[in-house]
């Protein structure tokens, strides 16, 4: 049973590995690229915090995905994750700005259609609206932080060399927070579809307890961390991250905005706190870290006068919102058909 479980889980682990390999560049790409932090330091910190974020704060976003589609067969969960991974791979190579979050939602809808289950349109509309609000919110936070830091630098008159020392510490802290937020928000993309069909049990050791979902997220978190450690340095060096061309302070603002947004869309504690004070809260939904980065990037471009805004990138985001889930749903539907009829696997109950 365990061997079969891990075989089916492999698609999710692959998705986790690719998430770590690609999205870690958004968190510490600039810091490493500009030689402010060593790769080993950044990767070590990010790996630890991505696992912590996944295990301790990943529940909320996963619950939203489970509500969208309760994938109750392991083979079905395997194909949903694999379809999302294939869609991301295919669309990324065609130049679109693709998000794993959108691909997994599309794949779940594909599974719903194949299994004849109803899709909760209320939850779907919440998820889709979060895709739009994620880059917008990230842009707003980036602009506010940009002006605040500009004001602070003008009045504090910190020497350039000391300023860099502070920025270096800031980049380390934000790499930790960014990794935590990434783990908390995006673990749902990697392991969310396996939650319902997982055969794991709760584990307890000297009063320290991990629920079966947390164990699943721990495995997913380790797969993301393995992507960070084994491949993210290549992504940072070869993909040509546009963040690298910025000053370390701007890069910090962008990573900060992205991390705050990912955290806002992932933290159950924050949601409960806001609701207890009667304040509006954000839904717990997996969002795209790349799109949050781009939102922050565009926000700062506009704050600087709008000359540096890459409007083609904006179009790519919008195209990604529409194309990715549709393609992923189709790929998942067709793949489930083959898995059920050719390989005789039970893909839903």
């Amino acid at each position: 049973m365990d061997a079969i479980f891990f075989l089916f889980l492999s698609s999710g682990l692959f998705l986790g590995w690719s998430l770590g390999a690609n999205d870690a560049a958004n968190i510490f790409g600039t810091a490493v690229g500009s030689r402010m932090i060593k790769f080993r330091t950044a990767a070590g910190i990010a790996s630890v915090f991505v696992i912590l974020g996944a295990v301790y704060a990943g529940g909320g976003t996963s619950q939203t995905l489970v509500s969208l589609g309760e994938i109750n067969a392991l083979a079905g969960a395997f194909m949903v994750a694999l379809s999302a991974a294939l869609t991301v791979y295919w669309l990324v190579s065609s130049g679109l700005l693709v998000s794993t979050s959108q691909a997994i939602v599309g794949a779940i809808i594909g599974w719903n259609i194949f299994a004849g289950k109803d899709t909760d349109w209320g939850i779907l509309s919440t998820i889709v609206s979060s895709w739009i609000s994620c880059p917008l919110l990230s842009g707003v936070i980036a602009v506010m932080t940009y002006f605040a830091i500009k004001h602070l630098l003008r009045h504090c008159r910190v020497h350039l060399v000391s300023q860099y020392s502070w920025v270096r510490i800031g980049l380390v802290v934000i790499a930790a927070f960014g990794a935590y937020a990434l783990g908390a928000n995006n673990i749902a993309n990697v392991m969310g579809v396996f939650v319902e069909s997982s055969p794991l049990h709760d584990w307890s050791f000297h009063g320290f307890t991990l629920s079966k979902v947390q164990i699943l997220f721990l495995i997913g978190g380790i797969s993301i961390a393995s992507g960070i450690v084994t491949y993210s340095h290549k992504t940072i060096q070869t993909v040509g991250n546009s963040l690298m061309k910025m000053t370390p302070i701007i890069a910090w603002i962008i990573v900060f905005s992205q991390s705050v947004v990912l955290f806002l869309f992932a933290s159950q504690g924050l949601k409960n706190f806001l609701e207890s004070w009667g304040m509006p809260s954000l839904p717990l939904v997996p969002v795209s870290s790349s799109q949050a980065v781009l939102g922050a990037f565009i926000g700062i471009g506009l704050a600087k006068g709008g000359r540096d805004v890459n409007w083609l990138a904006v179009l790519k985001i919008i195209a990604g919102w529409i194309v990715t889930p549709i393609v992923s749903a189709i790929v998942c539907f067709v793949s489930l058909f083959f898995l059920e009829n050719v390989f005789n696997q039970v893909v839903y109950h």
Partner: peptide
């Protein structure tokens, strides 16, 4: 000491 890596050439 690599204190201001991206601006050291300018300084």
């Amino acid at each position: 000491q690599n204190l201001i890596p991206d601006l050291r050439a300018n300084v």
